[in-house]
Write a protein that binds this DNA or RNA. Structure first.
Lengths: 159, 159
DNA sequence: TTCCAGAGTATTGTATACAATTAAATTGCC
DNA sequence: GGCAATTTAATTGTATACAATACTCTGGAA
């Protein structure tokens, strides 16, 4: 009997995404070094530059992160002067994340820096569009399958 | 003057990859729950099932991880009975990662489990191939740009 | 032989992630 | 109005990642 082998293409796809994600992370970290921002911190700032103030929960929905990740991340952003965490008066459960003046002032600098670095990537809009739509497919498949914790059940049904 | 905006497509591409990577991670974690393996642990096992024994360095090259990540990961795999870490006799600097009997025995079970779960993804080989080749492009771009720490220099040259 | 540059691994420190739990505040329902 | 269920953040515990450093070992040069 031949060796049982896993579906290698899927493996490789997953690993490629995993590796690309790490590389992007490093790329942004280098690009944003002058500002001392990590990639997760940067995307949090991006959302806030659009829509601040937001609650931790609202920010988490946009970034697909929970309070276990965001609370310490936001504390670090606060310590570095980018945001202020303010307990809401109308609903004391909520913490509103406000931008500081520094954040407003540095926004265009950060945008410009990222813009410059991204041009180094040299991907066409078509290439990007195509990848994005495929990634959306993958993500929604993964959502359907795993978000509802159906994996075990479905596999067990097969057995 | 209009607001300066970053190159949103690139942002979205990066975020899509970042989010997809996290979802894949969770997907594998659920699928492998019966074995108690995380995704990074699983890909380490995959490589070892192909080629054990390997040194930490060799494993790290395949997985694109350094000893700072691998050492604790491998210690956990050892504690759970999947591998043995054996200091090489011919070169005392090296640590050889061997598979345990349990690992050999469970290999096909793990493969089968992943095979079952992956069929739930429902992507065609063509779709997967196309994504992979695009991801390889992105990764090599990121390698070229950032691996050699050229980002700052190149941007500064533009200024 | 001795010394030293480099290789290989481990450790330390910082920053994510996320499941699970806790704690506080609010809402809904009687 | 009073209390249970829900919502929202924070906390705890585990597991990656990775830069920077430390430490040991090896092989070659003086």
């Amino acid at each position: 009997m031949p060796k049982v082998t896993p579906i290698l293409l899927d493996e490789q796809l997953c690993f490629s995404i995993y590796a690309a994600s790490k590389k992007f992370n490093h790329f942004y970290q280098s690009a944003l070094a002058p500002f001392g921002l990590t990639y997760p911190q940067y995307i949090a700032m991006l959302v806030l530059w659009e829509d601040a103030p937001l609650t931790v929960h609202q920010l988490g929905e946009r970034l697909e992160l929970d309070s276990g990740t965001l609370t310490p991340l936001l504390k670090r952003l606060e310590k570095q002067g980018w945001v202020e965490r303010v307990r809401s008066r109308t609903d004391e459960r909520q913490v509103l994340i406000h931008l500081t003046e520094m954040a407003e002032e540095k926004r265009d600098e950060v945008y410009a820096r990222i813009g410059q670095c991204q041009t180094l990537l040299g991907m066409s809009n078509d290439e990007i569009d195509s990848m994005m739509s495929e990634l959306v497919t993958v993500k929604s498949q993964l959502d359907t399958v795993s978000q509802e914790r159906k994996i075990a059940k479905q596999v067990d049904k097969q057995a």
